[in-house]
Design a protein around this nucleic acid. Structure first.
Lengths: 347, 347
DNA sequence: TTTAGCACTCGCAATTAAAGAGTGCTAACA
DNA sequence: TGTTAGCACTCTTTAATTGCGAGTGCTAAA
């Protein structure tokens, strides 16, 4: 549809704007090394590109700015692949050289790396617990009337809840029950836990006294209330350095959204292993209309654990961010893999 | 030192400024109901108060603004006690009526209440784990080569760490060791754990094979690396509504500080049970020079668990904040107390 | 001792003017 | 016919000017 020349010009304009954050004029473009047309020619092409919806003007006589459509086209067809600098590669490497033994550590390091190398805000969605399998259930009494229930998954994730023990239940009974549960539930995907608990196990427990019934209810409440997936945010202040965030009100709406968690979690979660780019209003949330989100994922084996994302202005260094995100996503997956599958853990 | 009239005027000025955030002029004051002097008289007194260092001018011909010394004097001598409105009391009550079974829940609710009722940012410092006692240690193997260690304290706090099992250690040995440790360490304050481990227990373990020695090292590393106290922040965006935070740069320095955690944790931690007010530069950190911090504490029995604080501009509703903070601090302490001491838990 | 009155100081908002960046269009050119 | 030089025009940005109002400090009178 577009001519070679138009493609070139569009690309150069967007590249320049991503760098400068300033509307770019025809003369600026004509001076670039890889462009050999006069400013007048560029002007004509720009007018056409604007008519086609790829560019916009901020006011009637000023340089052009990429439109959302322009960015979309850029990301899909124009963007030149980004080569991470040696420095950047080393930075990532070092972060993962750290002796890391814990899930949270890895996630936090990754979030940090992402935000430091990009100057955008990184958000990592913790694992959807429901996709992992139960390893062990523990009830540890704290006093006569309270106990803490601990649930460990095969990925080493630990969930815990304190609860009060109803007086009619004897500690010994509780223990017996936990034993039964452990026996029957080991290895069951958390996602089926609830179901299995309600059918098989409920049957089994009914054979025992009514006290079991009561205790079981407590346990269920303590363990299976919905646990929202955890959000790890890095470099929240980075975005304040972007010129598009000079406006306090914008900052506030964005931060409120991040603080509130559920909406953004919903926005980020995605199930493909590809990297996905959502530009501006493509996010379908008003607060995001000037922002882009790039999401990737990390996994253990075939189980996809969570989402890793970068949040920045629509004027984003897409190419760099995409390279970096896919690098980090791989590194995370590798690390987790080495822990739970092979055995050659970094020690 | 100051005359009655000066006290009155100073108080009224500060009260007004806390409300309006605008420099207050002599006429504004003379119009107040409880002030019966003409603007000229007020002007003279203001000039004196300025000379004494309690007030400042933003420029040569504008109303006065309280100085840091002014606020300090206000907090110490002038402030009138604040009566929480019925609405506010209900709000707090409702928040604590929720059936709460977990430490984190209580803390998060409290942080939320504080920030919502004040429109400032609340920060709660999690318990210093080292002040609580060990309840139980658990090692749960995940695979041939990895396991997760879980440490439960008597306050229901759960710490966990994944680690890799060195090949030379057999699962059975590990279990035996955990048993020994549990037997010997139950009820030991976490703060002594390290010491006790190094002396008594080390002795005990040395009697067994060298493999114990090795395993013990791993365990220690996994469990007793320093765990920074957790920070719960509520209403981070509230502060953006304060007129003194129109300036993005200020916002950035503050947020960076909160994000970085250690410095602010150090700033907040305090050991008295009183409420402490730190105004502006009294905080001895440059980023805090226009901010005040009010801190209180919460505890279980005699063990002080953590710090609860509010962060706002020096132009803060000190009186309200102090009432609220002490209310919340009591409520938290009560709640925890009811869990672990008496037995009349809210169920 | 208090207060009325008045000249004076600043900051702020609105107005105007000039400069500069960039466009669109026309006409000339290869 | 596609490209480019030239020029008038548009619109933003910045600085300078002005007037207004809030507030002060001082003086003199009550």
């Amino acid at each position: 549809m577009l001519t070679e020349r138009q493609l070139l010009i569009l690309q150069v304009i967007i590249d320049d704007f991503i760098q400068s954050a300033q509307p770019v004029g025809s003369r600026t473009i004509s001076k670039k090394d890889n462009v050999s047309y006069s400013s007048a020619t560029i002007r004509n092409e720009m007018a056409d590109l604007e008519e086609l919806g790829f560019l916009e003007k901020t006011h009637s006589s000023s340089g052009r700015v990429p439109s959302e459509k322009g960015y979309r086209f850029y990301v899909d067809h124009l963007m030149s692949p980004f080569n991470l600098s040696g420095q950047e590669k080393t930075f990532v490497k070092q972060a993962f050289n750290h002796q890391m033994v814990e899930f949270e550590q890895v996630v936090q390091q990754s979030a940090r790396v992402l935000s430091e190398l990009t100057n955008y805000t990184s958000i990592i969605l913790g694992p959807e617990v429901y996709e992992t399998k139960l390893k062990q259930l523990q009830i540890i009494p704290l006093s006569q009337i309270s106990a803490v229930a601990i649930l460990v998954t095969d990925t080493g994730h630990v969930e815990h809840r304190s609860f009060t023990i109803p007086v009619e239940i004897k500690p010994a009974d509780l223990e017996k029950m936990v034993n039964i549960l452990n026996e029957r539930l080991n290895g069951v995907p958390i996602i089926y836990l609830h179901h299995k608990l309600n059918t098989e196990i409920a049957e089994l427990l009914k054979k025992h006294t009514s006290e079991f019934e009561k205790a079981y209810q407590y346990l269920r409440a303590a363990l299976f209330d919905e646990q929202p997936a955890k959000l790890y945010v890095g470099g929240k202040t980075n975005i304040l350095m972007q010129p598009e965030f000079r406006d306090i009100d914008k900052v506030r709406t964005l931060y409120s959204m991040i603080e509130e968690e559920t909406e953004i979690a919903h926005l980020l979660r995605h199930n493909s292993t590809d990297i996905k780019v959502s530009i501006g209003t493509e996010n379908e949330v008003n607060a995001m209309k000037d922002l882009s989100i790039i999401t990737g994922s990390y996994s253990i084996g075939d189980t996809q654990l969570g989402t890793i994302a970068l949040l920045g202005p629509t004027r984003m260094e897409y190419s760099k961010v995409i390279s970096l995100l896919s690098l980090l996503s791989d590194r995370m997956t590798e690390t987790f893999h080495s822990w739970y599958q092979k055995g050659s853990t970094g020690e």
